[in-house]
Structure formats: structure tokens, C-alpha cells
Amino acid sequence: MLCETFEYRHQARTPATYLALGAAIASAYLVHNLDLPQLHQLLALLFVGVVLWRIAINPIRGFRLSDGGLEFFEGHYRRKVPLAEVASVTVYQPVGDTTRCVLNLRSGDRLALPGAERFGTRRLVAEFAGLGLPVLI
């Protein structure tokens, strides 16, 4: 059965991060040109450094679900789980909280799905059921 890929990915390299980089560089430039105290210059350079560090390491959080399996992204940690290894999927939403999704593997391991809070329980149940996986609610 061929179906389209269901994916959620959040990463640090976004337009907002590049806008923050521009603001950081502009503030460092102004602080330097206005001859403000060295503490202000240090803080401005620290701001530039933090934004550049976030862009450089680009932490990614999310998942990709397809016929080939499930792929997790959590920072620099990546894991691919074939669908044959998934015994069932538990999808729930505690009262007043966000959606949670846990994969129950045949090995007995349980994996939390990063990024599941972005979707409602119905959407996740439909996506996993569409691939023929048992879903526990």
C-alpha cells in the first residue's frame, strides 16, 4: 500500500532565527560605534554568538511516518523504526494537556513520539491506522 508521508519537523533554522541574527549583528554594531561600556559590547557579542550557535547546530525535533517506517529526530539523535517492529501505538490527551503518542515496540520498549503535541488525537489515530497499526486510545 502506497500512501503519502506524514511528517512534522521543527528546527532552529527559521526566518525568525535569521531575523534575530540580523538584530544581533545590528545591536553589536551600534553598541560598538556608540562607544558604550565594554559590558554592553560583551553582551551584544554574546547575543550574536548564541544566535550563530543555534543556527550552526540546528537542533531538529519531529518525526516522519511512511510505508518504510517511522523516523525520529530529537536534536542530533535520529532513529528509524520499521513498521514491523511496532506492536501498537498509544494515543491519548490528558485533561487540559497536549496530545501524547507512545509507540509500543515488539521488543517491549516504549518510545514517545516527539512533536505529537502539534496534532489532535484523531489525526494521529487516522495516520497510524492508515498504515495498519493497532491504535490504543
Score class of each variant (00 low, 15 high):
G130D: 12
A129L: 10
L2V: 10
L2C: 01
P15F: 00
T121F: 04
E117F: 11
F47W: 14
P114C: 06
L133V: 02
G62H: 12
L133I: 09
F63Y: 07
Q93G: 09
E4T: 09
T98W: 13
A44W: 06
Q38A: 10
G130P: 14
A129G: 11
Y92E: 11
R123W: 02
D97S: 11
I137V: 08
R106N: 04
R64N: 08
A116G: 09
T90L: 14
V89L: 06
F119C: 05
E117P: 02
H40D: 13
V95W: 14
R122P: 00
P15N: 00
T98Y: 13
L52Q: 02
S88A: 15
C101I: 03
R64M: 12
E85W: 06
V50L: 13
N58D: 15
Y29R: 12
R64F: 07
L30P: 05
I55C: 06
Q93L: 11
R118S: 13
Y77C: 07
G130W: 12
L133R: 05
R54C: 12
L103H: 07
A12V: 00
R13T: 02
P114V: 04
P15T: 00
A129Y: 02
P59I: 06
V51P: 04
P94V: 03
L103W: 10
P134V: 03
D67L: 08
L105S: 05
L105Q: 07
T99L: 06
N33Q: 15
L83V: 06
